[in-house]
Design a protein around this nucleic acid. Structure first.
Length: 400
RNA sequence: GGGGAGUUACCCGAGUGGCCAAAGGGGGCGGGCUGUAAACCCGCUGGCAUUAGCCUACGUAGGUUCGAAUCCUUCACUCCCCA
């Protein structure tokens, strides 16, 4: 299956600048393509996985990815889809964040400088000369046209600062720079990037009189309309220190029934015919499809071993069994009550929340429902399972 | 530069001197039902404290008052109209 068909049949394609010529290029030769990642945190979250997966599919088909970490553009901030000016990052933050993101990206992509590249756009953006930039690049942008774009219309109601207004120029310039350095002809990104991507293809046409393509992915939301990868605890991160593997696995296992097929196509490499079989499952059997989804995605991100542990722990937990595979929490001598243990195990943010959880009847200790709000903690022996609700549990042990 | 409106908890948003840790909705969490799903029903949703109660919080910093989210002043920020 060629790269285009793969992307299209798996649901990656929302908008394309010139589908016919792009199809042809992807099936007949090697295309160098890029996607940008803003280093706004030191880890990717699952919202980033869509571009990453798309890049991986293309690379597997022999095309050459450039992962651009936006050290330069992060200094400015993309206003697309944001309703207010976002916090400015310091250069120190950006540098730190870039390190973390690079490590994660290299798990999905081969970036050996031949088959794939990873680059910081700060390399060229930070050196730009203002006047030269205005004369060479700025003159190709029509303010009238920019203002008619939806991305800016929204912001015109709430206020848009000049620095943000320039973001699009910088992203367009990135594309031009990559086109010149690497012959990069395709930029891919979320659908909210459509305007910025078009600005790039337009710029390449105007300045170098060459054609380039843009492709966007559908904005993924869950069936219930929520943004992908957001939980009460915040985003679902790829870094196990931010989102434990167990929680990561559970996130995928608990997706809405209606999302399973779509997510299998987008977030795993499971072949389409196998996905078709899984999608056809009905009723309680849908769990099988969810388990495949959770295993595949977690394996991609955290490896097979950690995935097996998280999977086994989840199964055991749903049966209410104690297991060594749950996240282990060491109690301290001052933890005397179940309430203390809940807070220690991060199952409750405060003692008040812990008490409410007990009063709500959602806490079990070693399989027994805790009814006493101030119940004392029994001897945990060599491990006692403390559980809140259906899918959050830890294994308590004595302090080391 | 001038004039006007505004800033309330995770989000939206009500509240114009005590009955306000602050209506309502959304979101989230817990329970029931179920399949670790959805829908639906019920409960909870600042912190500490067993209870009483205490502390912190209505943009910021002061003030008036027995008492302030509510009144006055300062500063910051946002939006609208005019230039």
């Amino acid at each position: 299956m060629d790269a285009w068909t793969t992307l299209e049949s798996r649901g990656f394609v929302k908008q394309v600048t010139d589908p016919e010529t792009l199809k042809k290029a992807l099936s007949s030769g090697t295309v160098t393509y890029y996607a940008g990642f803003d280093p706004t945190a030191d880890s990717l979250h699952i919202g980033h996985m869509l571009p990453v997966m798309a890049m991986a599919h293309l690379q597997r088909a022999g095309h050459v990815p450039i992962a651009v970490v936006g050290g330069g553009t992060a200094m400015v901030g993309d206003p697309s889809g944001k309703t207010e000016l976002r916090q400015m990052l310091t250069s120190d933050d950006i540098a730190k964040n870039m390190t973390g993101m690079r490590t994660q990206l290299s798990r999905f992509l081969v970036v050996d400088g031949v088959r794939g590249h990873m680059i910081d756009n700060g390399e060229w953006l930070l050196k730009l000369n203002y006047i030269a930039f205005l004369r060479d690049i700025g003159r190709h942008f029509s303010v009238n046209k920019m203002l008619t774009a939806d991305a800016y219309k929204l912001r015109l109601e709430k206020g848009l600062s000049f620095i943000e207004f320039n973001y699009q120029l910088l992203q367009a310039y990135d594309f031009l720079e990559l086109f010149r350095r690497f012959g990069c002809q395709l930029q891919i990104g979320g659908d909210d990037q459509w305007g910025n991507i078009l600005a790039g293809t337009d710029l390449i046409r105007r300045v170098d009189e060459k054609d380039a393509w843009g492709l966007t992915f559908p904005l993924t939301t869950t069936a219930s309309g929520a943004k992908m990868g957001k939980t009460a605890a915040g985003a679902v991160w790829l870094d196990a220190n931010r989102t434990p593997v167990f929680d990561f696995f559970q996130y995928w296992l608990n997706v809405d029934d209606r999302d399973v097929g779509r997510f299998l196509k987008l977030y795993t490499f499971v072949p389409l015919d196998e996905i078709a079989r899984l999608e056809a499952l009905q009723g309680a059997d849908v769990r099988e499809a969810k388990r495949v989804l959770a295993r595949e995605v977690t394996t991609l991100v955290h490896g097979a071993e950690a995935t097996a542990v998280a999977d086994a722990a989840g199964s055991a937990m749903s049966r209410g069994e104690a297991t060594a595979d749950l996240p282990t929490v060491a109690l301290l001598p001052e933890d005397r009550t179940v309430v203390d243990a809940l807070v220690r195990g991060a199952l409750a943010k405060s003692k008040g929340e812990a008490r409410r959880a007990i009063e709500g009847g959602g806490v079990t200790l070693g399989g027994e429902k805790v009814v006493e709000r101030e119940a004392a903690l029994p001897d945990v022996g060599d491990g006692l399972v403390l559980k809140v609700g259906k899918s959050r549990a830890v294994r308590l042990v004595k302090s080391a």
